[in-house]
Amino acid sequence: MNAPDAWSPVDPLGEALHSLRMSGAFYCRSEFTAPWGLALPAMPHSLMLHVVTAGECWLQIEGHEPLLLQPFDLLMVPHGLGHTLVSRPGTLATPLFDLPRDYSAERYEVIRQGGGGAATGLVCSAVRFDHPAAHRLISLLPALIHIRNAQSQPNGVHTEWIRSTLQFVAAEARDLRPGGETVITRLADVLVIQVIRTWIERDPAAQSGWLGALQDRQIGRAIAQIHREPARAWTLASMAQVAAMSRSAFAARFNELVGEPAMHYLARWRMQVALTWLREGDRAIADMAEQLGYQSEAAFSRAFKRVMGIAPSAARHGSEAAPK
């Protein structure tokens, strides 16, 4: 396959964001009255999102000071760390799955708790991501992302967008119109992407490493092409051609930005794609080998174990892969 025109339009970062296709663990609307407390367990490989639609509450999470959340605050816990939400610091928190709930839909719940005092409304969700680019992106996020009172932030396109979406979520949670749970779950998913976009634009940490490489005009182009065509018989020279750079300049620039050689990145990317396929279903390992550019199942299996630390069969049956 020929390399694309070196200056054809491409948006590697946009493609990574597009990979944030979510599968929901749960969504819920909570109606609390003080005193109340909710303990959310750790949910590995999940991202949790909380939107305060009315009243206020406190977040408590190990390693951080208690954080006050007020109306139209939005809090993201990207790595599924266990935490509590309480009416006041020190309030006893009931484990999430010990609370009675009403099921409006298969993955949408309504939780009510409290002693009759001041009211707090929350919309919460926990979502998972299947695409390897999504896993890589989520792994780079901080432990907490807090957007404080989006209604009072300075005007701007992105802040205004989040503000309007939060208002819509709050209205749906308040009015309980037919189909409200569907609207809320869809908007929660969109909010996740918008918050990550905002973090990428504002946090200096997002301008270096893998994310910085995606935003580099030439290296980002090569990474995007690797993601699209993992089975291609890539060489350092062919990657450099996609980036419209010399072989030596490309190798040095890729290593500088990404933190590993380009051919190592290619091998890890192929194995991350394979890991996703293994967890998704019963695709034959021989088919995976062919689709990822390996000449035999044995060659693929050796590469998988070298990169991921376990055999493909073990990964399929739920053992944790640990990339080397």
Rank of each mutant, 00 (worst) to 15 (best):
N2V: 11
P4N: 01
V10L: 07
L20N: 08
Y27H: 14
Y27D: 14
R29P: 00
S30Q: 06
T33I: 03
G37H: 06
A42W: 07
A54P: 01
L68F: 01
D73S: 14
L75E: 03
H79F: 14
H83S: 05
T84C: 15
L85C: 04
T94A: 08
L96M: 06
L96N: 00
L99V: 07
E106C: 03
Y108A: 06
E109W: 07
G116K: 09
G117I: 02
G117R: 09
F129Q: 07
P132K: 00
R136L: 10
L141F: 11
H146P: 07
R148V: 10
R148L: 03
Q153T: 14
Q153V: 13
T165W: 07
Q167G: 15
Q167C: 15
F168Y: 13
D175F: 11
G179N: 07
I193Y: 07
Q194W: 07
T198Y: 13
A206V: 04
S208L: 09
S208D: 09
G212R: 02
A213G: 02
D216T: 00
R221H: 01
A222C: 02
I226T: 10
E229I: 00
A231V: 05
A233R: 14
E256K: 12
R270D: 05
Q272T: 04
A274Y: 01
L275G: 03
R279P: 01
E280C: 06
D287C: 13
R302H: 14
G309T: 00
A311D: 11
P312A: 07
H317F: 10
